[in-house]
């Protein structure tokens, strides 16, 4: 029993990272119909920059993190401006943009591979503080991650439902053509979406680099899981869907990783294929 609870806490800890990466991917996919595979690249780019500033240059941890998040936001925006917009302007559709996005991650991952030689990069220097409550241990960092997730999702909810730009984002989700017709500035909203989504991936990247560390393929691996989470939850209700998908996958990963460590990927992607078959639009789709 304690074991099951312990695995549950581990699963929720993992789910926090998925939730931060998945929500940005989901917003971009739901509003702009861009399958942004390179979102995973933005995520580890922030992790590496954080490591670089904090450990190599010895910059203060908080400032390193903030700088990494800002740069991540700009990298995401740059990918849209330099790659996706030109592809779409020349008539490329969802699949073409997806292929171009794969190209972006190949380039970045190659760069990270040269820089790290494939070794895992961990930014922290000390073991993590551990808290024990009634036989279940968890890490203090998990609490921080969950607090960040709550804050992010809360702010996103307020943004979507209480502000004019948030209304524009929801408008894009519902009907893109109409949104432009009623005089919405689609270009500006698009910029905003990429900045926000990429900053969220940046937060996850900094935290992951600090916690378990990152390797050049961590970005694409995490992103594929985040994609599954988004498919699981569906994009009709972005926040509810991604939190549900991330939680399910985090818990699945924790249990599968304990009982059948060799079959985790198999489990995650079989779930995805099965779910696409049963409910292509997700549980809340």
């Amino acid at each position: 029993m304690a074991n099951a609870l312990q695995l549950l806490t581990i699963g929720i800890g993992i789910a926090g990272y998925y939730a931060l990466v998945a929500v940005g991917f989901a917003i971009i996919f739901a509003t702009l119909r861009i399958f942004h595979i390179a979102h995973g690249t933005v995520f580890i780019a922030a992790g590496y920059l954080f490591f670089f500033l904090y450990r190599v240059y010895g910059v203060d941890m908080l400032w390193s993190g903030l700088a990494a998040i800002v740069v991540a936001a700009l990298v995401g925006l740059a990918i849209d401006k330099a790659v996706y917009i030109p592809v779409m302007r020349r008539g490329g559709g969802l699949f073409s943009v997806f292929i171009a996005s794969l190209g972006v991650s190949l380039i970045f991952d190659a760069g990270f591979l040269v820089y790290t030689k494939g070794v895992i990069t961990v930014a922290r220097t000390a073991p993590l503080a551990i808290i024990s409550v009634g036989g279940v241990t968890f890490r203090a960092l998990d609490l921080l991650v969950l607090a960040v997730v709550f804050m992010v999702y809360g702010l996103l909810y307020l943004w979507f439902h209480r502000t004019k730009t948030g209304l524009a984002v929801r408008g894009l989700t519902d009907n893109r053509g109409l949104a432009a017709v009623v005089g919405m500035n689609v270009g500006q909203t698009r910029t905003l979406i990429f900045l926000v989504a990429s900053a969220l991936a940046g937060i996850a990247g900094v935290l992951t680099a600090y916690d378990t560390g990152i390797a050049p393929d961590t970005g694409s691996r995490t992103l594929f899981v985040a994609v599954v989470a988004v498919i699981l939850g569906g994009v009709r209700n972005i926040l509810l869907g991604t939190i549900f998908g991330s939680l399910s996958l985090g818990i699945l990963t924790a249990y599968a990783g304990f009982f059948f460590p060799e079959w985790v990927t198999f489990g995650v992607f079989s779930t995805m294929i099965a779910l696409i078959l049963v409910r292509p639009r997700g549980v809340f789709g």
């Binding site: 790659v83 020349r90 171009a100 991650s105 380039i107 190659a110």
Partner: peptide
């Protein structure tokens, strides 16, 4: 390896744009 990978990535982007 990385150079080949980056080249293929750039080719994918180039083909999709042009």
């Amino acid at each position: 390896g990385p150079i080949q990978q980056a080249l293929y990535g750039a080719l994918l982007i180039g083909v999709m744009i042009f």
